[in-house]
């Protein structure tokens, strides 16, 4: 119990701390923040249930008024902004990522961690994110999708990094992968 709470809190904090990492800009000028990397890691390391709770805790603190989102954003306003859909999608993304990790326990870690991050952290997250933009900007789903597809290459990069990090963690701290207990 204590370990679960500590891990959930620490991964919520890690997601927040990754938002402090200065954003990098891809070759074609799209800014990429490390925050969604944190969401993916919550799923790949903590598994579905704990990963979901960690991201929910992170969002709760954002809603309470802490500037934990990348760029020092926070408060209730971000839940009404065009990118709010991504915020609502964050916990579900972590859950799906974790679920894939848990269900495919017998398969090799690195490719599954990357696949789980791709499906949870991109496919599921964008379903929510694009829907949110479609609602707040009053556009159709495909129109809203066209506005943000440019961010996908950066996210694919992050999914690969999340997979490599998860595999690295499994080597450095074998007992820490709660999504795949030994």
């Amino acid at each position: 119990m204590e370990r679960s709470v500590a891990y959930i809190a620490l991964f919520a904090a890690l997601t927040a701390a990754l938002g402090l990492v200065p954003q990098i800009t891809l070759a074609f000028g799209v800014p990429v923040t490390a925050q969604s990397l944190g969401i993916m890691l919550c799923g790949t390391v903590l598994g579905a249930r704990r990963g979901f709770l960690a991201v929910l805790l992170f969002l709760l603190l954002v809603a309470l008024g802490l500037p934990l989102l990348s760029g020092g954003r926070g408060g209730l306003g971000v839940f009404a902004s065009p990118t709010a859909g991504f915020l609502f999608g964050f916990p579900v993304a972590a859950f799906v990522t974790g679920l894939i990790m848990e269900r495919m326990r017998s398969l090799p870690l690195l490719p599954i961690a990357i696949l789980a991050s791709l499906l949870g952290g991109i496919l599921v997250l964008y379903l929510f994110g694009v829907s949110g933009m479609a609602i707040t900007l009053d556009k159709s789903f495909t129109e809203a999708a066209a506005l943000i597809l440019i961010f996908i290459p950066g996210d694919i990069l992050k999914a690969v990094i999340a997979g490599v990090l998860t595999a690295g963690l499994a080597r450095a701290r074998p007992g820490s992968l709660l999504s795949r207990p030994a």
């Binding site: 500590a6 890691l41 963690l169």
Partner: peptide, 22 residues
């Protein structure tokens, strides 16, 4: 991004310490 691995390992060690302290 390579600093992300040591950063996460440190976080996990902190989490273990906190769990024991709790």
């Amino acid at each position: 991004w390579r600093i992300a691995l040591p950063m996460t390992v440190l976080a996990l060690d902190d989490a273990d310490h906190v769990a024991e302290a709790l």
